[in-house]
Amino acid sequence: MTATVSDADGSRPTSDPNPVISGRRTAFQHSLIWVFVAGPMVALALAVPLAWGWGVDWHDLVLLVVFYVPAVLGITVGFHRHFTHKSFKAKPWLRVAMAITGSLAVQGNILNWVADHRRHHAFSDREGDPHSPWLFGTSPLAVARGFLHAHMTWFFDRNETNHRRFIPDLLADRAIVRVSKTFGIWVAVSLLLPAVLGGLISWSWVGVLTGFFWGGLVRLAISNHVTWSINSICHMIGRRPFRSRDRSHNFWPLAVLSMGESWHNLHHADPTCARHGVLPGQIDISARLIWIFEKLGWAYDVRWPTPKRLARLSSQEA
């Protein structure tokens, strides 16, 4: 496929002779996808009966929250708004910190994540989009198949997005490439550190196991499904107060858990905007963190929304 697509941040059309797909995952890499998708899902399924039968210790819930928040913000502020869409510039040390914290979410290394997401914006809800729920039609069966595809089964496509086409800027950044190459270390930290802390807090092997289960696996399952819901639910259900060339929607029930990512309609209407929740009452924790970074002098050239631009993007929907 060599058609005209959007540029690196997904906002402007440009021509690129490089193909969209370049290479395939090895069998070993593909098996890891199954492990890190299926493993946390099994843990989440077990969490309800375990909590009902034996309860949950307070420190396990604390570990879940403590590891959930920075990892998800690493995805939303770092991988998404900074690296994918260049919504703001950041000090070099902050860029590395965001790349590492985003890696703790175990949603793939930063290069693959950003390449896939830029490709999503280039072809949003059209052929070439890696995870649109509308690729199979609009019949009830096609919509159900599309939802499952957008939510998670797209991970099992072994074709890889072309890095040279979509992320040449990151390939030239040695520090970010180094973080990507050490992704396995950050996966180990993400899963084992909650176990270690659980053991130290309870001073028991049971605490090690429950820390790994709740702070590691269950936490990953929740953050995975929240992120996947932006790809699936937010392209199917909700409000569309802004004009976009796809079917992106705002879905308020996910606003807090997604750190503001579920204000998805504005994001697709204006991909480089640093704030997604721009209307009254729309909580956007990620935008607030960027604001804090800016006040501290760690972030600059932040692309905040302006009334004039929002008025131009507004649709007739309330």
Rank of each mutant, 00 (worst) to 15 (best):
I176P: 04
H276L: 08
G277L: 09
I222M: 09
N162D: 07
N231I: 11
P253G: 15
F251G: 11
H268R: 00
S232G: 12
G216K: 01
R240Q: 11
H276I: 01
L257R: 02
R243K: 07
I237Q: 08
I233G: 02
H225W: 12
H249F: 14
R165C: 05
W252L: 10
L266A: 12
H268V: 00
G281K: 08
A255V: 05
W205D: 05
V196P: 06
L200S: 11
G199E: 10
Q282T: 07
V177M: 12
L217G: 00
W186Y: 13
L254M: 04
R164K: 14
G211E: 01
D169N: 12
A175L: 09
L191D: 14
L254T: 00
C234G: 11
W263L: 10
E261K: 10
A175E: 12
L217F: 01
N265W: 06
R275Y: 02
L209C: 10
L197M: 15
H267M: 10
L217V: 02
V256C: 07
V206A: 06
S262T: 03
G260I: 13
N224K: 12
C234A: 10
W186E: 12
H163R: 08
V208Y: 03
H235P: 03
V187L: 01
L171K: 09
H267D: 09
V196I: 15
V278R: 01
V256Q: 04
H268Q: 02
S244H: 01
V187R: 00
M236V: 03
D169T: 12
A175Y: 06
H225T: 02
L209G: 10
T161Y: 12
S204R: 14
L192V: 12
V187W: 00
R178E: 01
R239H: 04
H268I: 00
W228H: 11
R247D: 05
L191C: 15
S180N: 15
H249G: 06
L257D: 04
V196H: 07
D270G: 02
S232V: 08
P194L: 03
D173Y: 09
H235E: 15
I237H: 13
A269F: 05
H267K: 08
R240Y: 00
E261N: 14
G211C: 03
W252F: 07
S262D: 02
